[in-house]
């Protein structure tokens, strides 16, 4: 049971509450300074050898970024998502490319798309998907895709739509 693993690990690390999403998928939180030692522990001692993904969630209204490190223990068919919360302003996180070299790609993308820095991660400052981007990191919640599109592209003329209720208010009303 993953609950036992959680209890065991909690004695070693300051884990937050356990979210049991499924019998084979849980999420835990940890303060960011402890992240890499927790991941190393899970990788080396608990069989979570596969880094499934690393991504960020922008909680703009709370002024925070959440980083989710999803690990998989294949032999037990367990998944554990480790959540780390960073202040949105000047978000910086320790790189884990030494644990999983492939993490460098994720970190490079997070730097570009969310503006979260991972000092020391190989190529973290290189353009990844966006070349010549001069706006704020586009996957942040405060980047408005619609506004961006409207500023850069023009609509083909000739489109207009009527609201059914308003149209009826003008052209039809029963017995009044």
């Amino acid at each position: 049971m993953m609950r036992e693993l959680y209890k065991k690990t909690k004695q070693l690390f300051p884990l937050g509450d356990l979210t049991e999403q499924r019998h084979d998928l849980v999420f835990v939180s940890i303060p960011h300074p402890f992240l890499s030692s927790l991941l190393r522990h899970l990788r080396d001692k608990e069989g979570f050898s596969h880094l499934v993904l690393l991504t960020a969630v922008d909680w703009l209204e709370r002024g925070e970024f959440q980083l989710t490190y999803l690990l998989c223990n294949r032999s037990k068919a367990w998944d554990m998502g480790v959540r780390v919360v960073l202040p949105r302003e000047g978000a910086t996180m320790e790189s884990i490319h030494t644990l999983w070299p492939t993490a460098a790609t994720y970190q490079r993308e997070l730097k570009e798309m969310f503006g979260i820095d991972f000092p020391g991660s190989p190529g973290v400052n290189d353009d990844f998907i966006l070349e010549g981007w001069d706006d704020i990191p586009p996957y942040r919640r405060d980047f408005d895709t619609l506004k961006f599109a409207e500023a850069r592209f023009t609509q083909r003329p000739g489109r207009e739509s009527l609201d059914p209720a308003q149209h009826m208010a003008k052209h039809h009303s029963d017995g009044s």
Binding site: Q21, R22, V52, L53, T55, G81
Partner: peptide
């Protein structure tokens, strides 16, 4: 509110969606 991860074995390997 919630978050989950769903994976499947596609022809190239592990395909998955992380939804929050």
């Amino acid at each position: 509110p919630g978050e989950t991860y769903i994976r499947g074995e596609c022809s190239r390997g592990e395909y998955g969606y992380y939804l929050v």
